[in-house]
């Protein structure tokens, strides 16, 4: 399963029409220990670039933007008790929300691993 990345350090993993979204390994390192995640409402429809969630470390609060448009179909409730999952396992157990993607073309336009590596270099 390939990951694609936004300029704003969110990743999307697309399975069928559903994209799983979180923040990149690089982003969590920059942010430091995550202490709280404000999750979006399931059922909300979002447009690419909308602020949909907030990830807080002790010293910073970072908005998470929707990297693709669509409808929020699931959120990672585990983060309420274990926000540190974003630090320990950002691209798997530390996912934040899932979107039913309206237009997979938006996904295709995101950066692949190599391009993102250049972006953060």
């Amino acid at each position: 399963m390939t990951l694609r990345y936004s300029q704003d350090h969110e990743y999307v993993r697309l399975e069928g029409a559903v994209g799983t979204i979180g923040i990149s390994r690089y982003a969590q390192e920059q942010l430091g220990d995550v202490v709280f995640v404000e999750l979006p409402q399931v059922g909300a429809s979002v447009t690419r670039g909308d602020e949909v969630a907030v990830v807080e470390s002790v010293k910073a609060a970072s908005e998470i933007y929707a990297p693709v448009s669509g409808t929020i179909v699931e959120v990672n409730d585990k983060l309420a008790d274990e926000p540190g999952l974003i630090n320990t396992d950002p691209v798997a157990a530390g996912w934040i929300f899932k979107i039913e993607v309206a237009d997979t073309g938006e996904f295709e336009s995101l950066m692949d691993e190599a391009a993102y590596a250049d972006h953060t270099a």
Partner: peptide, 14 residues
């Protein structure tokens, strides 16, 4: 002091 991400010196306009 804790939960200071609610506060102005971090969240600024938010």
């Amino acid at each position: 002091l804790t939960l200071s991400t609610r506060e102005q010196h971090i969240r600024r306009e938010k």
